[in-house]
Design a protein around this nucleic acid. Sequence first.
DNA 1: CTTCAGGTACGATTCAAGTCGTACCTGAAG
DNA 2: CTTCAGGTACGACTTGAATCGTACCTGAAG
Lengths: 111, 111
Amino acid sequence: MTGKNLVGPEADALDLGAVFRALADEHRRSVLTQLAADRSDNERGCNSFDLPISKQTQTHHFRVLREAGLVDEIDYGNRKGIRLRRADIEKRFPGLLALLGAEPPGDTAPR
Amino acid sequence: MTGKNLVGPEADALDLGAVFRALADEHRRSVLTQLAADRSDNERGCNSFDLPISKQTQTHHFRVLREAGLVDEIDYGNRKGIRLRRADIEKRFPGLLALLGAEPPGDTAPR
DNA sequence: CTTCAGGTACGATTCAAGTCGTACCTGAAG
DNA sequence: CTTCAGGTACGACTTGAATCGTACCTGAAG
């Protein structure tokens, strides 16, 4: 029941370059913007983002977000949860999430 | 003597995606970090950044930074000046430059 | 058990981006 | 004028990233 947390970098090890690279992609930025908009920071299903891309590509994007240290992935076997690492991000890069939150929500348009 | 200012996007038209894409590159981030560190915001020569890349590639990177709206380029014909658009960036993305400024300055290492 | 949806692994493809070589332009200094 | 350093234009190359097809795994529900 309690899924295992997939590994990501420590809070102090977050790299600004990796973060910018992660947020350079439209779809990943959309995911993070949606996560940042929900102040409750509840765990969220990976298929709740309506991404206009295949499952395999979504797996790829979530992995990039996790390896950049922006989200936690919780593996339940046949489904997966995702949670924003808000505290770690705010500690290392204060104000970053506010930048995403200030964006117009309708920016999920495909390139 | 007075060089002409090369065109870039208006302050209100700055796109977060383009900004993140611009800052995803190590060399461009190095340039912007150095610019952000100098609070005087003086115009600066394009060859004053010690980038370990060829002239043509530097031209390319400065163009990307300008088209993202992060810097102004001033063309003098046989040399070029560059200036951080601090006010515009702060207005549109408050706190962004602070993130760069907080980075360790020795992050100019080539990949 | 079987079925099924969510997710992953691996490989292939496609495309954008970083890089440089060659040639050329520009203005300043001899 | 010529020379020279800084910069650009264009093309070519290379690498990385995004995407998907196929096949497979996992746990829950019949």
